[in-house]
Design a protein around this nucleic acid. Sequence first.
RNA 1: GUUCGCGUGGCGUAAUCGGAUAACGCAAUCGCCUCCUAAGCGAUAGACUGUGGGUUCAAUUCCCGCCGCGAACGCCA
Length: 581
Amino acid sequence: MSYKTAMWCCSDLMFKGHKMDYKVEIAKLIKIDDVSFDEILSLVVAAKDSALADFAFPCFKFAKTLRKSPVIIANEIVSSIEKPAFIESIEAVNGYVNFKLSKLNFVKETVDKTLALGESFGKSTEGAGKTICIDYSSINIAKPFHMGHLSTTVIGAALYRIYKKLGYSVVGINHLGDWGTQFGKLIVAYKMWGDKEDINNRGINALLEIYVKFHKEAESNPELNDTARNWFKKIEDGDSEAMELFLWFKEVTLRDVQKIYDRLDVHFDSYNGESFYNDKMQPVIDELEAKGLTKISNGATIVEFDQSEDMPPCLIKKADGATLYATRDMAAAFYRKNTYDFYKSLYVVAYQQNLHFKQLFKVIEMMGYDWAKDMIHVPFGMVSIEGGKLSTRDGNVVFLEDVLNTARDKALEIINEKNPDLENKQDVAEMVGTGAVVFGALVGSRIKDISFSYDKVLNFEGETGPYVQYTYARCCSLLNKIESSGSINYDNLTSTESYELIKLIDKYPDIVEDAGAKYEPSIVTRYIYNLAVQFNKFYLEQNISNSNEQDKCARLAVVKIVQNIIKDGMSLLGIKCPTKM
RNA sequence: GUUCGCGUGGCGUAAUCGGAUAACGCAAUCGCCUCCUAAGCGAUAGACUGUGGGUUCAAUUCCCGCCGCGAACGCCA
């Protein structure tokens, strides 16, 4: 069967569950007196060095109870096993039982299955009938999008796509920061210096300018703050002029930010932010009081925790009666539960807010809702610039748009140098530039702090987005140039480079699942990178165009599979891959 | 001060819920385009995994102390 026909001949989608689970099969082979299957299974590990084995079973644990050395135990296990067809060899080495799979069998199974599944490879049904809410990006109105917002945006968006791939229905929520006295300030500033046309044209930057100007002016003219408070009160009261301006600021901001979201391929299903919950907090407060959870302390309404929790109290209402962050988030939590009946509700928010979410979840649990356990804070590290803290006020800030533009320009420069005749240069440069930025934000474990530097972001070599994109373009080029009419010679795919590559290919579904389970997109990022590395080794070792028809067909099948996975994996991260670069 | 998180070659990171010789990239040095995209590939050099204990046949991984860095710790979000 040719690699092209193979893609169509399998109508039945074989997801992960149908695949042979080698760990289980191997565990079944091993019998030790008084040791359960589950314990044996838990000890079977994928071998680190595949020159030694594919799977290994360490015997050290049983030395004491069996009163034999691990080496002897391993030997006995080996001689007790009748080698099944899917195993090539079983060997006892230094107390380990090493299993090597039958390469031909494995290669054939994996290649056929993967080709047949095409782009649905890696999909799963684990999320069927379940809804996951993800709160991410959550920008503030009238504030520019800077590097500090990148992590929440791309991590949240990646999780969004990963859960979709796993079969969940997903609700992406941009919990807008669209409430507070700053809107009163903006109105005052606008009335004093605002230029409607300018703001419509320049968007957030224009808004920010008059906002900054207000703060300067208010230093010498403090009564401006009172005027601002009055205007904010008018927004609260629904005054038509105030509302009109407020909504306009919001619209201008969203329109502006949408450009960034489009470039990052980020999407939301809801923009219900702080203002949306304004009228939904009182019922929560009432319920807290009815359940006797609140207390008045120095005039403020608080919820105290049990001593064993070792947490400071959660502030529900200020002494002046105004609500707070936590109150709003509680209203949002109830709204989301009632509206979406979520299976899980994620908050992709920096670890600075660890305590806040711990308190929030605990309060809801104290109210008697067991779904409190389904709310999960997905924390990530902070961004600093050259060691300094990010601060709009101190001007120590890097705007994301500038970073994306700089990266795009650098990519264009490289294209002009290396491949000046490339068509769609601008588009490719955009893909490569943003690819580098997004990939860079998603390679490391999310909990690690990030120190921003243009040097790092503008490096397009090695462990980077452009490296992976380049590999993808290589795949496309091969498939474009080389034709094959033969059928797959699977024997050709048992060389070290091929076999290692196919082993990696086989792992993709597990990788996506693992990334979802751990809320960790970097698992996908690193996998795709490793896949590209292994592919490049394969590419170097195997000359495809000069091989005979059946070998060519086999190799092209692998190229096709890798091309699919790279495209799919990168799309989970929100990165597009050009076919040429 | 209290609580939480982090500490791996010069730098940035990895190590599949304890497993075999700690892996990769950047930077450095050297090599590879008459041949499928050199944004690539290979090689060399570089680490007592912060530190001191403990548990274990086995610890980067788990537990405790210490050191360093970061964050949070009542009317901001």
